[in-house]
Write a protein that binds this DNA or RNA. Structure first.
Length: 454
RNA sequence: GGAGAGGUGGCUGAGUGGUCGAAAGCGGCGGUCUUGAAAACCGUUGUACCUUUACCGGUACCGGGGGUUCGAAUCCCUCCCUCUCCGCCA
């Protein structure tokens, strides 16, 4: 998921999380050791992303945490030894004055232990809270740049069609075909909600089935149907929280609607340890996705492009660290297959440092050609999140030599269904306002070659 | 929503407030034996953090958080989760 960088970070929830998952230990993004071992790497990453992080404050906090822990450990050791003596003395029937003297001293130490522990815990919490706002390190191949204009084009597939007639955009096409009803969607729920009808609803379902079949049968992904509402710990695991709360829909009892299936799929193994031969784990799921789209007022207000609720087939992989680079290439290819079989021209761009998402180290976007806009638009985003999410969600595997290591997590759309429907309508329209159904999709669409007004 | 029972290491399952990171069994790993394997026997077997080049050592963790106590897996409060029964419901 690509999360907007423009979002405010204000905390808009006063609702306590009554459903935190006890199993999951949430770690900060970075190995805290990086603060002392490789501060320059972090500094360079922040600069490239255009993120402001007070690294010195983080380091100071970490040093403080360490020294507090050292004092606490030592004092606690004293306390434990003394308590042991008391126990032994009482048991052996000695006691009396000796014990009561010890007890007097001990109550003081107990006070100090309590205070130290409090201090230590609060410092560690402050550090972790701060670290949760630090984005992932960047892959060496992620290019510099601050805007979409600086995303290099990796490859292009297909050639945009030249039309011998005046073309219509998907809004006009969808309405005249009677398959998309924007007005009634708005009546039911508000702006950025659309009602699909008849063959439109059928076409969306055909696309979902087509995509799932390709990803499971041809590409070996295992299908899942995850919860669409998840708790705070799950949202934190993949990096949506704490920083991007404003972009999420929340229920009154502290759950969140998923903005992408990446969230539940990646967190399936939160807090767990995989065996080396379980990797790579490859999962796919069709789910609706819910996004508040805060901060995108006025953008793509017409049509299906940017909705509060949209359908997506998601791909997620958990791999061993050495395999994640190749897995990203593979995953991107798996997403591209869909566009190719649907005969939709597209290009692959790599996101530059300023455009890449919070959790990602390297991202390829697939951009499909939209004749209605005469431009390429994002239809899939495939990211290697390296160990960033694995750290947060505590997803590890046992390597062959027995050591525990964090997995690498990857996610990609395979594809965004609504946008695929847009591309299909606009690219495959004819002069009469009908839409040609590509060969590969027909088995999922009653074998119809054409979508026309009923 | 109401009533009840529980949450302990990879799993099963003990644990009287005092040397319990935690019995026992299973599983895993290593070894002996065997042509090989099984069985048997012996040994070993959690994670994180701090210190250390390393060894050693220390601390924390028995669902989460808080409290009582010199000392908590054990007592108290609270939250979460699981299970059973009742009610409601697709």
């Amino acid at each position: 998921m690509r999360t907007s960088r423009k979002l405010s970070t204000r905390n808009c929830s006063a609702i306590p999380d009554r459903r935190s998952a006890p199993l999951v230990i949430t770690h900060a993004m970075l190995d805290r050791k990086l603060l002392t071992d490789a501060p320059d790497t972090i500094r360079a990453m922040c600069e490239a992303r255009g993120t402001v992080v007070d690294l010195d404050a983080l380091r100071a906090l970490n040093d403080r945490r360490k020294s507090l822990q050292a004092s606490f450990d030592q004092l606690r050791n004293e306390q434990k030894e003394a308590s042991r003596e008391i126990g032994v003395a009482k048991k052996s029937g000695r006691g009396g004055r000796e014990v009561s003297e010890l007890l007097a001293q001990m109550s003081q130490i107990a006070e100090r232990v309590k205070a130290l522990q409090n201090n230590m815990t609060r410092t560690a919490e402050a550090l972790d809270a701060a670290l949760l706002h630090v984005p992932n390190l960047l892959d060496a191949t992620t290019p510099r740049g601050i805007s979409a204009a600086e995303n290099p084009v990796v490859r292009t597939w297909g050639t945009p069609r030249t039309f011998a007639f005046p073309i219509q955009d998907h809004v006009t096409l969808g309405e005249s075909l009677g398959i998309l009803d924007f007005a009634r969607g708005a009546k039911l729920a508000g702006a950025r909600f659309t009602l699909y009808r008849g063959r439109g609803a059928r076409l969306e379902r055909a696309l979902i089935n087509f995509m799932l079949d390709v990803q499971t049968r041809d590409h070996g992904y295992t299908e899942a149907m995850p919860p669409l509402l998840v708790n705070r710990a799950t949202m934190t695991g993949t990096g949506q929280l704490p920083k991007f709360e404003a972009d999420l829909f929340q229920t009154t009892d502290g759950l969140f609607l998923i903005p992408t299936a990446e969230v539940p799929l990646t967190n399936i193994f939160a807090g767990e340890i995989l065996t080396a031969d379980q990797c790579p784990v490859r999962l796919t799921a069709y789910t609706p996705c819910f996004r508040r789209e805060a901060g995108s007022y006025g953008k793509d207000t017409k049509g299906l492009i940017r909705q509060h609720q949209f359908n997506k087939v998601e791909l997620v992989s958990l791999t061993r660290p050495d395999d994640s680079a190749a897995e990203l290439e593979r995953m991107t290819t798996c997403a591209e297959t869909i566009l190719q079989r649907l005969e939709l021209p597209y290009r692959v761009v790599q996101l530059c440092a300023g455009e890449i998402g919070f959790s990602a180290a390297k991202t390829y976007d697939l951009e499909v050609w939209l004749p209605g806009q005469s431009t390429y638009r994002e239809i899939s985003s495939c990211s290697n999140c390296t160990d960033f999410q694995a750290r947060r969600a505590a997803i590890r595997f046992k390597d062959n030599d027995g050591t525990l290591r964090f997995v690498h997590t990857l996610n990609g759309s395979g594809l965004a269904v609504g946008r695929t429907l847009i591309a299909l309508l606009e690219n495959h329209q004819d002069a009469d306002g009908n839409v040609h159904i590509p060969e590969a999709l027909r088995p999922f669409f009653d074998h119809s070659p054409l979508l026309s007004r009923e």
